[in-house]
């Protein structure tokens, strides 16, 4: 389980996150929703070790992950798929995947790669192709596949729907749901696309200007009209 406690992040005088507390149990999908500038990406980048928090901490199964390097956090079992389809276009599909588990023993890497190919068959078909020949949806699958290659206990997904067609978004989010159900990974998902995200998540967290305004079962948050009008703008 990923536990985030009182996490506060400042960029100079600006507080991007203020006392954020979230629990992400294994096998569940927690969706953090909120408008642009709510602090969603900052939350993800802090958990992955790219940003150092001013206060608070995050733990994975009791081990503190905050204030560690991204390289160590991946090894501890937290993998981030950053915003904007984070594949390396100059590398092949297979190389992008291999990269995700480069630090692991070869045999483990092979096993995980087979699992990733099961989950995303299209990646198996395109193994030898350069990542920049893939479509947007395929590239997002590759980005998630790369993160899974580290065999994480917790997967962080930053705006996986960005720039994808609605049908593809639904497909990707369904895969994420399946992943949580089948592998018991804890999934923390950040989305601007609140409707779709809440439909498949277990828990919803509404973030506004760096503070949590509401936490609850995803279905309740989705049906709370006042919340929708005030923070989600629909």
């Amino acid at each position: 389980m990923l536990s985030i406690t009182d996490l506060t992040v400042s960029y100079g005088p600006v507080e991007a996150l203020n006392g954020v507390t979230i629990s992400v149990p294994r096998g569940e999908v927690t969706a953090v929703i909120g408008a642009n500038g709510a602090g969603k990406s900052t939350l993800m980048r802090t958990l992955a070790g790219l940003v150092t928090p001013a206060a608070g901490q995050a733990t994975l199964d009791g081990e503190i992950i905050t204030r560690k390097s991204p390289e160590d956090i991946v090894r501890m079992g937290v993998a981030l798929v950053p915003e904007g389809r984070s594949t390396i276009p100059e590398l092949t599909v297979e190389e992008n995947l291999r990269l995700g588990g480069l630090w692991r023993p070869k045999a483990d890497r092979r096993t995980t790669q087979a699992e990733v190919f099961d989950l995303f068959p299209v990646l198996a078909e395109r193994q030898r192709m350069r990542a920049d020949t893939l479509s947007g949806g395929e590239r997002q699958q590759l980005a998630i596949g790369r993160a899974l290659m580290s065999n994480p206990k917790c997967l962080l997904l930053d705006e996986p729907s960005l720039g994808l067609a609605p049908l593809i978004v639904t497909q990707i989010l369904h895969l994420v749901r399946r992943l949580a159900d089948e592998t018991k990974i804890a999934v923390l998902l950040v989305e601007q696309n609140a409707v779709t995200a809440l439909r498949m998540a277990d828990t919803g967290v509404v973030l506004n200007l760096g503070r949590i305004v509401q936490t609850g079962p995803a279905s309740e948050i989705a049906s709370d009209e006042k919340l929708r009008h005030a923070y989600l703008g629909y």
């Binding site: 790219l50 390289e71 991946v74 981030l80 950053p82 984070s86 990269l99 480069l102 580290s150």
Partner: peptide, 11 residues
């Protein structure tokens, strides 16, 4: 090509 993605991959 992309040091950030490399670090996030554990390199």
């Amino acid at each position: 090509f992309n040091p950030e993605v490399a670090r996030l991959s554990g390199v």
